[in-house]
Amino acid sequence: MKILLIGEYSRLHNSLKKGLNLLGHQVTLVGTGDMFKKFPVDESIQTKWLTDKPIPLLFRKILLRILKKDPAQWEIGYRFKKILPKLKNYDVVQLINSHSIGTYPNFEIKLLKKIFEQNGKVFLMGCGDDYPVVKAYLEGKMRYHMLTPYLESGSKLKSDYALKYLTPPYKKLFDFVYKNAEAVIPSDMDYKIPWEGWDKVAEMIPNPIIISKEYSPIKIEGRKIRILFGVNTMNYTKKGYRFFDEALIRIEKKFPHLVEIRRTENLPFHIYVKELELCDILLDNVYAYDQGYNALEAMARGKIVFTGAETEFEQHYNLKEKVAINALPDAESIFLELEELILNPERIENIGQKAREFIEREHECEVVAKKYLSLWQQTL
């Protein structure tokens, strides 16, 4: 089968591509690389003129202030249009979300219209911001979520990037994509729940993970416990990082002889992975029910992850033992969970092993790729 994957914001499409390649399928991945993360793509539509160098960046800011629009989005659309002649005769096209190219909505509709005309069946991922998800969050469908900080009483946040999906241009884009899609595929509980009730929603397929066969279980004896807090500054508020920061201040003060804390910011993925390899505990996300990619990558390496691991997640996978620590939006709760692990390092070793086994069972990229193929083939 010939498959076209458009958009990459987490490593989902890279991991799925790996699984599909192992099963003998031809895959092309188109995307920007997602800024500082620099995910690999086959066809790049990353901006080249309006880079982060001083003069182009200044020009971009001036135009943004005058026109109230980011010229980099036009460049992304232009670069996608240039490669359109190559993106044809695919059996399946899958979009990472309704704004998968990343240009302005009206321009994106024109580009996607051409993609849909010259290829086979279209599928939409339910793995991030989109109209139904943002709408469900604002309507209170979940106890907490990425927009919780924006909605809190006294919040200083004037808006949120995700709110653009509710504006008329992006709603029009979503409607166009949804109309042309065969199905929407949720990737975890944070998107499965908001998408419930939409008639094209398929069964949830877990995020695929490329699992290294080189694996050494955690052994704490004779050394400090290593805690990694990898911060994406753009998401500081919406991931609840302040609760981790508050808890870590207390942990560092109380257990300087037992822990080694490493705090990083905005690392490219290939460097971030090296940091993951060295840690025992990763602080990932507070406002979540399920695990995103950073958490899953760490769990695949047998690490303890403070992330979304709510009751809904445990029930979905019928889990009887912990595979991650459910990080609540409460610094005291996080502190107590960390303290318990620090004082009982054998729990770190045990949960880390369970995390690895869970990823092998539910998220291994070839296993997950077979589930995608089964869904796609039902419609071909």
Results as ranks from 00 to 15, higher is better:
residue 226 R to T: 10
residue 226 R to E: 14
residue 227 I to N: 09
residue 227 I to T: 05
residue 228 L to H: 14
residue 229 F to K: 14
residue 229 F to N: 14
residue 231 V to N: 10
residue 231 V to Y: 12
residue 233 T to F: 08
residue 233 T to M: 07
residue 233 T to Q: 13
residue 234 M to F: 13
residue 235 N to S: 13
residue 236 Y to L: 11
residue 236 Y to V: 04
residue 236 Y to D: 08
residue 237 T to G: 11
residue 239 K to C: 12
residue 241 Y to S: 14
residue 241 Y to P: 07
residue 241 Y to R: 14
residue 242 R to F: 12
residue 242 R to P: 06
residue 243 F to S: 03
residue 244 F to Q: 06
residue 244 F to T: 04
residue 244 F to D: 01
residue 246 E to Q: 12
residue 246 E to H: 07
residue 246 E to Y: 05
residue 246 E to C: 07
residue 247 A to M: 00
residue 247 A to R: 07
residue 248 L to C: 09
residue 249 I to R: 15
residue 250 R to A: 04
residue 250 R to H: 04
residue 251 I to F: 01
residue 251 I to L: 02
residue 252 E to R: 10
residue 252 E to S: 09
residue 255 F to K: 03
residue 255 F to D: 03
residue 256 P to E: 03
residue 256 P to V: 02
residue 257 H to I: 12
residue 257 H to G: 11
residue 257 H to T: 13
residue 257 H to Q: 15
residue 259 V to Q: 03
residue 260 E to G: 05
residue 261 I to G: 02
residue 262 R to W: 05
residue 262 R to A: 08
residue 262 R to E: 13
residue 262 R to L: 11
residue 263 R to K: 15
residue 264 T to N: 05
residue 265 E to D: 09
residue 265 E to W: 14
residue 266 N to I: 00
residue 266 N to S: 03
residue 267 L to E: 01
residue 267 L to M: 06
residue 267 L to C: 05
residue 267 L to D: 01
residue 268 P to Q: 07
residue 269 F to S: 13
residue 269 F to A: 09
residue 269 F to K: 12
residue 269 F to Q: 15
residue 270 H to T: 09
residue 271 I to N: 12
residue 271 I to C: 10
residue 272 Y to T: 09
residue 272 Y to S: 15
residue 272 Y to M: 15
residue 273 V to S: 13
residue 274 K to P: 02
residue 275 E to V: 00
residue 276 L to F: 12
residue 276 L to A: 09
residue 277 E to Q: 10
residue 277 E to P: 00
residue 277 E to N: 12
residue 278 L to F: 15
residue 279 C to K: 06
residue 280 D to Q: 05
residue 281 I to G: 04
residue 281 I to N: 08
residue 282 L to C: 06
residue 283 L to R: 06
residue 283 L to A: 02
residue 283 L to E: 02
residue 283 L to M: 04
residue 284 D to W: 03
residue 284 D to H: 07
residue 286 V to G: 04
residue 287 Y to D: 10
residue 287 Y to V: 02
residue 287 Y to K: 09
residue 288 A to R: 10
residue 290 D to E: 03
residue 290 D to T: 01
residue 290 D to P: 00
residue 292 G to I: 01
residue 293 Y to C: 08
residue 296 L to E: 01
